[in-house]
Structure formats: structure tokens, C-alpha cells
Nucleic acid binder design. Sequence first.
DNA 1: CGCACTACTCCGCATTGCGTGGTAGTGTCT
DNA 2: AGACACTACCACGCAATGCGGAGTAGTGCG
Lengths: 109, 109
Amino acid sequence: MDQTQLLKGVLDTAVLAVLRHGRTYGYDLVRQLRESGFEGVGDASVYGTLRRLFGGGYLTSEIVPSEEGPARKYYGLNGAGFDMLEQSTKTWIGFADTMSILLQGEEEE
Amino acid sequence: MDQTQLLKGVLDTAVLAVLRHGRTYGYDLVRQLRESGFEGVGDASVYGTLRRLFGGGYLTSEIVPSEEGPARKYYGLNGAGFDMLEQSTKTWIGFADTMSILLQGEEEE
DNA sequence: CGCACTACTCCGCATTGCGTGGTAGTGTCT
DNA sequence: AGACACTACCACGCAATGCGGAGTAGTGCG
């Protein structure tokens, strides 16, 4: 089993969740996600997600020159981003509940 | 937010989980999944999943004539199907843990 | 100069759920 | 009979999205 398909539809949420702790740039986000357990995330997926979210108006973006390489593009949550995070967190929890009920039997409220 | 993308990669597992309680046919499976919380699943998705799983050798299949309509194609888990279910259940749990840690903070082991 | 590391981007592919529409069997109502 | 509704399944094309590979740059090391 591959996480690949599981990641679909969740990467957005995961990215927003990381960003909630403060702004970062893509490269670092990839690292954080991998350390958090999404070991397989491709960098292109994360960058793509960031562009999508930014394009959707959920993120702020700012280019900051770095002393250790190319300039970094810092992303941060704006109001819409926080709302989105809250919303998709709820959706996720409902979904996860449904799954866990299905997987372990029928009890639970 | 749409469950659509969340379903990707999980429908297989959900179908296997339902089938664990005994064999059924597609039409009924769709009903069960919808009642379980996946209200939006399309029947074509479920049938497609069943065909995929059957093609992969995880399901048994048997056509049974019905008195109330067209013949039903009953599907059931075989050994490989049970293994698959067990495996993907583990993957799911790991994944869900990672997500919940990301979403609620950093505590938890 | 070549290599490694950082940082970001583009392109094409594969997977997979969905919507639409189609086939087919049975029963009901007019 | 004809029109519908319900059951049951399937085919086709679309859309979303993660991934792999390749490319562009900047900095620093041997």
C-alpha cells in the first residue's frame, strides 16, 4: 500500500496545518512534512500545492533573499487560509471517524 | 471541502472493510457505504473498485440470480483480500495518526 | 571546474472517483 | 400494451492531483 493515493486531498490540509505555526518556504515545508510522517512526499507536489493554495487566495507570499542559496519564497496563512484549515480539519475528522468505524466494527458514537 | 479527493485511495479499503462482514453485491455495497457516512460515493466508483479488486485477485465473485430484478454479482474476500485489508488498515491508521498530530499540535507519541 | 546543497519550477504521466448514459430484468399503474 | 420505477451492472470520458524527471539558479568546497 502506498500513501500516494491517501495523500490526495489531504496534502492541502497538511500544508495549511504546518503553515499555521508560522510562515515558511517550500523547501523547509517539504522537510517538515517528511519528518512528520509523510516520508514520501515529492517536492514538486508540495510546491504545486503551495501555488494552488496561493492562487486560491489562501496564502500570503513573500520573496526573501537568503544568504545560503537562492531566494526563498515564504508563504503564510491569511484569514481565508485559517478558515480553510478549520473547515478541512472538520471534514477530515468526520472522514476519519467514518473510516475508523468501518474498520473496527460498528460501535462508537 | 469535498470528500471526493479524500476518498481516493480509501475506497478500496472501505469496500474491503464492508466485505469483511460477508459477501454482498455492488448495489448493496453502495447503500452500505452511503449509510456509513460516504454519502457521496458514486455507484460507478464502487463498481469500478470492485472490478479492480477482483482483477487484482483480492475478491471472489459469483453471479446469483435474483427474484427481484437482474442477477446480482456477489463479491467476497479471499485470503489475499483479508491480507490486503489488514495491510491497508495499518497504513490508514499510521496515516490518520500523522494527520491528527499535524492538525492538533505536536504532542502525542 | 566539477560537485553538492539549497530553492524553486515545468512537463507529462498514472491513478482514481465522478457524471452521464446505456443495458436489462421485474413489478405496478393506467 | 405502454410508461415508469426500481433493481443491478457497466462503459466512456473527464477532472483533480501526487509523482518523477529534468531544468534553472545561487552559494560554497575541493
